[in-house]
């Protein structure tokens, strides 16, 4: 809202009459702060209202002045009385020659302070322990997960339905000896890749399944993830053999047969 729109909105008049909401007050006060013209406008409005109110002036009875002044004096006295209630009470009611209640108060205060300090310390210690315990719990959970995963792999590998497929390297990769685990029942396969030699920089291993004479890609062998010796391998029905070729980075649609490095038959 610009200045003109604001003045036309009537909000300022409503504010002068005291009927604006808290939100509207904030808006109006913001305009008043920003624009001197609006301030002038507002004080003219308020002066008009003040003068309007003055039309109703009426002489009060003489006694009212005294009443008002006495009422304020009473109020002022009451305030002075209540300004120092502790001293008032202590000297009036509790001052005894020995003064022992006062020492009791001091002692209680000191005791409270010490107790608070000890509580704080204990609380800090407990907080530290809690943090340690929470960290431990997280570690345990991570370990547990790893354990469960390993148990699962162990169960899979040792299952009677899982067939071990030895993939042996040919003259291009002599000595290479991989093991794949093939389970027709569960339609699941795994492959141990850690024994593959490092491929040339511009090449990547790709694994293929021979299904009724056709080579179907089961994916690229990513050797980055060698933390887990056994990686999941895509499963395909009716595979007769598994074959590994060297392919350009990113893999190929069809295997480069000349670069077949290893293969093994599924019985």
């Amino acid at each position: 809202m610009n200045k003109e729109n604001f003045l036309a909105s009537g909000l300022l008049e409503q504010y002068a009459l005291g009927i604006t909401s808290n939100e509207e007050n904030a808006v109006v006060e913001n305009y008043l702060k920003q624009f001197p013209e609006i301030r002038t406008e507002f004080s003219a409005m308020r002066n008009a209202l003040d003068q309007y109110a003055q039309q109703y002036a009426k002489q009060p009875p003489q006694v009212l002045r005294q009443r008002v002044i006495e009422a304020i004096e009473n109020e002022a006295d009451r305030k002075n009385d209540t300004n120092d209630p502790i001293i008032g009470n202590a000297s009036g009611i509790q001052s005894q020659p020995s003064g022992w209640p006062r020492y009791l108060v001091y002692a209680a205060t000191v005791f409270l302070a010490i107790s608070l300090y000890l509580n704080k310390q204990k609380s800090d210690q407990l907080q530290d322990k809690l943090t340690d315990t929470q960290t431990l719990l997280v570690t345990c959970e991570t370990d547990n997960e790893g354990l469960r995963s390993n148990q699962d792999i162990f169960a899979f590998v040792t299952s009677g339905h899982t067939q071990q497929v030895a993939i042996k390297g040919n003259s291009l990769a002599p000595g290479t000896n991989l093991m794949a685990y093939w389970n027709e029942e569960e339609s699941r396969a795994m492959l141990n890749t850690i024994f593959l030699p490092e491929p040339p920089a511009d090449k990547q291993y790709q694994i293929w399944a021979d299904v009724e004479g056709e080579m179907i890609s089961l994916g690229l062998l990513d050797q980055e993830e060698d933390n887990n010796p056994l990686a999941d391998l895509a499963f395909i029905n009716n595979a007769e053999s598994l074959n590994i070729t060297l392919e350009p980075l990113g893999g190929s649609e069809k295997p480069t047969v000349s670069l077949l490095v290893a293969n093994g038959n599924i019985f």
Partner: peptide
């Protein structure tokens, strides 16, 4: 500053308006 003389002055100056408004 809660000066009681200021309050008395305020009364003398505007007591009639304040009273008149209350009465109104």
């Amino acid at each position: 500053q809660q000066d009681q003389k200021a309050l008395a002055f305020l009364y003398d100056k505007y007591g009639d308006v304040l009273y008149g408004i209350a009465h109104k």
